[in-house]
């Protein structure tokens, strides 16, 4: 082949115009699909993901399970409780009928109470995570993109909220909020308690997401594709939600998936301290609090709820880690 031949070839075929992969499948592999493929390849993430799904299904299907299992979470089996208030039989009364045994004294079935506790816990944690993420996204985007004094104020509030001890504030807020709406001798309804808890998590939790989103937005807003949109006459809404938001989903998803186990832990802690959900409602924190007084005589009562909540949080944490690695391959270590 002569030199001139190459020249004419080069002139005829414009190298930049040749597609990278000239096969006919014309739908591109989006960054999201690539991340999904990476997630699928991560065995730990997939296993923990399935465990997570299992727990979620269990929580959602609690009434169905009750139907099949045949025991309600409030039913008391006093005939299976000995005089010293401990359940009869081995390891806290584990049997074919009561898979995880019975509670001392009241004799309620631990398995079905855990299934319902799962429901409570997941409901509160997911709602709180959704709320905090939404708040964090909006405030983070506004703060990061607009900058100026708005950013100054929001950033200060974020730093301020991070300096507050959550649990101690929660301890303090819970009774004062309750005292605002209910008299000292009123019965406080469960939905109200749950609502205040979610509100508390939202009040303190949005800062993390907001900080993250703000940082991302600050790095994105200098990109030229944002300028391209502005140069075409795009308004603030278009830039924030059509141009920036699609680039924020990855970190938001990761922070959401790691927020859920955080709130599961937080909810259980508040209930453990007696300021969250209270007794007749099935809940991990309440159960463990009560079980501590039986730690010496009936360790099974502590071990079952303790192990379940550990597995639940572990599955969410591992899945969240896997998700982060899949969405941001550079961060994996």
């Amino acid at each position: 082949m002569s030199l001139s031949q190459i020249e004419t070839d080069a002139a005829g075929v414009d190298a930049t115009a040749v597609p990278v992969a000239p096969q006919p499948g014309m739908v591109g592999r989006s960054p999201g699909r690539l991340a999904w493929a990476r997630l699928r390849a991560n065995r730990t993430a997939m296993v923990s993901g399935w465990i997570m799904v299992f727990f979620i299904v269990l929580g959602l299907a609690a009434p169905l399970i009750e139907l099949v299992y045949g025991i309600s979470p409030f039913e008391q089996f006093q005939d299976k409780i000995a005089n010293n208030s401990l359940p009869l039989g081995y390891f806290g009364g584990v049997s074919g009928e009561h898979w995880f045994g019975l509670e001392p004294q009241l004799g309620r079935d631990i398995f079905i109470r855990l299934v319902y506790g799962l429901r409570t816990s997941l409901f509160i944690a997911t709602s709180a995570a959704l709320l905090t993420t939404a708040l964090g996204i909006v405030l983070g985007i506004v703060s990061g993109y607009l900058g100026g004094w708005i950013d100054g104020v929001i950033s200060w509030v974020i730093d301020f909220a991070l300096a507050l001890p959550f649990l101690i504030f929660a301890l303090a807020i819970m009774p004062t909020v309750t005292a605002r709406f209910y008299g000292p001798r009123d019965e406080i309804p469960v939905p109200f308690r749950i609502g205040v808890m979610i509100f508390l998590f939202a009040l303190f939790g949005w800062t993390g997401t907001a900080r993250l989103v703000r940082g991302q937005v600050i790095s994105l807003r200098e990109r030229e594709f944002v300028e391209a949109a502005r140069a075409s006459g795009a308004g603030l809404f278009h830039i924030l939600f059509r141009q920036l938001l699609p680039n924020l989903w990855a970190p938001i998803l990761v922070s959401f998936s790691l927020a859920v186990p955080g709130y599961i832990t937080g909810e259980a802690a508040l209930s453990f301290l007696g300021i969250g959900v209270v007794d007749p409602t099935p809940d991990f924190g309440v159960m463990i609090n009560k079980s501590l007084s039986y730690a010496q005589t009936d360790p099974a009562y502590l071990i079952f709820p303790g192990v379940v909540i550990f597995l639940l949080v572990l599955a969410f944490n591992l899945f969240g880690d896997g998700l982060r690695d899949a969405l941001d391959p550079k961060s994996s270590r």
Binding site: A15, P19, P22
Partner: peptide
Amino acid sequence: VGLNPEHYNRFPHEFSGGQRQR
């Protein structure tokens, strides 16, 4: 601009620098 019109549904990371500029 000399690009394959069928690449409508592809993402920027699937193109070279010159193609991206196009």
